Computed example of a mutant assay.
Amino acid sequence: MVNTKEIEAMIKAHMPDAQVEVQDLTGGGDHYQLTVVSSQFADKGLVQQHKLVYATLQEAISSEAIHALAIKTYTPETWKTKSIC
C-alpha cells in the first residue's frame, strides 16, 4: 500500500513542475484518482500523457501497491481553460 503523499512525491520526482491532486477512492489505499497538470504533457495525446504518469508509478503498480488508477491530465493551458469554465 502507498498513501496519497507518496504517490504525489513519486510523480513530482519525475515531473517536478507537476501540480498533483490524489484522492483515495475507497479508503483502502489501493484505488486512486489522480489529476496531474504538467507542461510535459504539451504536444502529447491523452494516451501519451497517461503513459508518462504510469511510468512515474511503475514500481508501485507492478508491486500491486496500487491496484487501480483513474487519471486526468492537463497542460497548464488546458487547466486554465477548464478552471474558467
Rank of each mutant, 00 (worst) to 15 (best):
E21P: 02
Y74V: 01
Y32F: 15
L46K: 04
A42T: 13
V22G: 05
V36Q: 08
S62F: 01
I7F: 08
M10Q: 13
E77M: 01
D24I: 03
L34P: 08
S62V: 14
A9H: 06
K12Q: 15
G29L: 08
Q49M: 00
S63L: 08
M1K: 07
C85D: 08
A65G: 08
K51S: 10
S63P: 03
L52P: 03
A65S: 14
V53T: 08
K44D: 00
K12E: 08
V53G: 00
I71W: 12
K5L: 08
I61A: 00
H31F: 13
D43G: 07
K80E: 12
C85K: 14
S62H: 14
E6N: 11
S62C: 05
M15V: 12
V22H: 10
K80P: 03
A68L: 04
S63M: 00
K82R: 14
Q23F: 10
M15K: 02
D43A: 09
V53S: 07
C85Q: 15
V37S: 03
K5I: 11
F41T: 03
I61H: 03
D30A: 03
N3K: 12
L34S: 02
L52V: 04
K12Y: 07
A9P: 09
A9N: 14
M10F: 15
A9D: 12
H67D: 00
M10Y: 13
I11W: 04
A9I: 03
K72V: 02
E21L: 13
V2C: 09
K5Y: 10
I61T: 01
V2A: 11
I71G: 08
A70L: 07
P76H: 00
T4R: 12
K51F: 01
A42D: 12
K5G: 10
V53R: 04
D24H: 06
A9F: 08
C85V: 06
Q19W: 05
T81V: 15
A18S: 14
Y54N: 15
H14A: 11
S62P: 06
T75W: 03
E6I: 09
S38I: 11
S83C: 15
L25V: 15
I71A: 01
E8I: 06
L69P: 07
T81Q: 15
H14P: 06
H67G: 01
D17F: 06
Q19K: 07
E21F: 05
T78Q: 04
T56G: 04
